[in-house]
Design a protein around this nucleic acid. Sequence first.
DNA 1: GCCAACGTTGGC
DNA 2: GCCAACGTTGGC
Length: 151
Amino acid sequence: MAYWLLKSEPSVFSIDDLAQRKVSLWDGVRNYQARNFLRAMQAGDEALFYHSSCPEPGIAGTMTIARTAYPDPGQFNPDSPYFDPKSPADQPRWDGVDVRFGEKFAQLLPLAVLRTIPALAGLALLQKGSRLSVMPVTAAEWKTILKLATR
DNA sequence: GCCAACGTTGGC
DNA sequence: GCCAACGTTGGC
């Protein structure tokens, strides 16, 4: 049982979109390190839903990994923004996972607040130059974040 | 819109 | 394998 943090631009796919859909493919990851984290996920793992590239970046809620990694169909679709003409059909480069909506936090936990919490100093998200869209979270960090979200 | 940081590409 | 050029991410 592991914990993760997944980034999405809310203008593309937000916590509200997931709340409505309940289960969704988490697709569009086009970075090898992030993909490797996707492939390491197990069903039942829990993840934070992070809103990036928006007026108020921060953690918006939680979700559960519902299905382990499988090929992301977008890589083979020329009309998809995630199309990758160099991905071999017999050995797809890019995977996605299915996620199930967990909860939406009563209020978003802003990035600026996360930075002020000493217990989160090691959070991968907060490291200088961190741009990964999929990253691990420790059990202790997870606990700290959920506690912050419910106060 | 700016810019720092990082990843990828491709020539050599 | 090196590395410059370019593209992308993402906070501000």
